[in-house]
Design a binder for these strands. Structure first.
Lengths: 246, 246
DNA sequence: CAGTCTTTTTGAACCCGTTCAAAAAAATGC
DNA sequence: GCATTTTTTTGAACGGGTTCAAAAAGACTG
């Protein structure tokens, strides 16, 4: 399918330097001109290296995108810290984190679609759903672990374990909505966040209710299963397609 | 962004014929060799027309994909009919329809990812989330309308109205999972369907419970809002990007 | 320092999707 | 039937991502 050569690790200081140069140039161009307008040739030229050289360090354009994604994620982490230190209730914490996520992403709205696109391709190494190892996801889920751990909400233990992952999923859904949101200043997305956070908070409270226990148990068992699949499966069968060319 | 010229309507019988020829050839190749291996050049050559000619009738490769998608949808509709005529309970109906969906899609698993990808791009006319007019979505939701209408499940009226759309969303989620499912014979996806359908059925029953009424009301109000956005918004603001080139 | 092995760098080449002006063929009007 | 207009068809060209063999530059060894 998609060749997607691995990006080589650098072996000398010179290489290190070149790689960094290419990366920063790429990020710059991506920020200034968006995805389509940023070409590998353009990056190479602006960085003063040859096209082939860029490909030596970054196996594909997607790898550059990944770097970009990483950066916004780190920005979001940094932006979230104050709120997580101040707020105590689960609801307030979640609300802050989600709103800050959108704040962070906002400057890149116009090409976020493409970003999401490449990330949704099952064959892409960037796909947060497929590859368990994907540091993107691990880091991302970790934020929600902190979010839950630091709150003193009354939530059943079994749910508490799964909650970070569930919130991560929820947050992916919000991003998907945001990508398609064309309202001014993304008002709709923010409203959606406000309302869904409120709803989620209510639901989590309800989840302790004995009436809901069987459903909760069943649902959580299912979630757990899926998560296990996600973190184990990939190594055995997923790679077969790669070698199956002729 | 993506130029995506519109596919011209044909004006003569000769043109009609050529267009059909190109389409069938394309579907054939897509089926046999997947997305990446099917090139516009390849299609044109196999169909015995020039490359430019193919582009005259189909503005882009995506348009061909759209045709492909349409076909599988129709297959699914046809396959679902018997079950919808036989089954009475909502649960059984949903289970059948979902399983048949996966059955229908299965032959195209390897390139379904790409299909989903192009569909997730906000700029793509194929995107079922963005363009209300997208017949793909209308048709698709319609199936779930029939599914709900034909069942005699006891479900609150307000929920009943939104249920088809919610089930459509649910079905999109399952497809997303399926795309990433590498288990043999897609066993995991089928199991997921079994369990989630069961769960949904239980949830729908619970939804009538007075305890849940406030949450239900709130959630449905939210869903309704989003749906309205979806079906109206697109005309005013979404198109600006199109004309905003320089 | 000379020779060898690695890493970095290059630039040409390949294939692909897409565009476009102009040729060929059909349809239309008189 | 001929001129004009419309539709269909062509093929070359452009710009883009990606690959690759081989040159250049460095690192390492004796």
């Amino acid at each position: 399918m998609k060749p997607a050569k691995k990006s080589k690790t650098t072996k000398t200081p010179k290489g290190e330097q070149t790689k960094a140069l290419i990366l920063t140039t790429a990020l710059e161009m991506l920020h200034e001109r968006g995805y389509e307008q940023t070409t590998m040739r353009g990056i190479a030229e602006k960085a003063g290296v040859s096209l082939g050289n860029a490909y030596h360090y970054f196996g594909s354009k997607d790898h550059l995108i990944q770097a970009f994604y990483h950066r916004t994620h780190e920005d979001h982490l940094r932006a979230s810290r104050p709120a997580l230190e101040k707020e105590a209730s689960l609801k307030a914490r979640l609300l802050s984190v989600m709103r800050l996520k959108i704040d962070t992403l906002e400057p890149y709205h116009e090409f976020a679609g493409v970003l999401f696109q490449t990330a949704a391709d099952p064959h892409s190494p960037l796909n947060p759903f497929a590859h368990a190892a994907a540091p993107v996801r691990r880091d991302s889920v970790k934020l929600f672990e902190d979010l839950v751990a630091g709150s003193k909400a009354r939530v059943p233990d079994d749910l508490r374990t799964e909650l970070p992952y569930l919130l991560w999923l929820y947050h992916m859904g919000i991003i998907l909505f945001w990508i398609h949101d064309t309202s001014r200043k993304r008002a709709r997305t923010y409203r959606l966040i406000d309302q869904t956070v409120d709803l989620l908070d209510k639901l989590i409270s309800l989840a302790s209710n004995p009436l809901l226990r069987p459903v909760r148990k069943k649902a959580l068992k299912l979630v757990l299963e899926l998560r296990e699949d996600l973190t184990s499966e990939t190594s055995d069968e997923a790679q077969q397609t790669e070698s199956g060319d002729e």
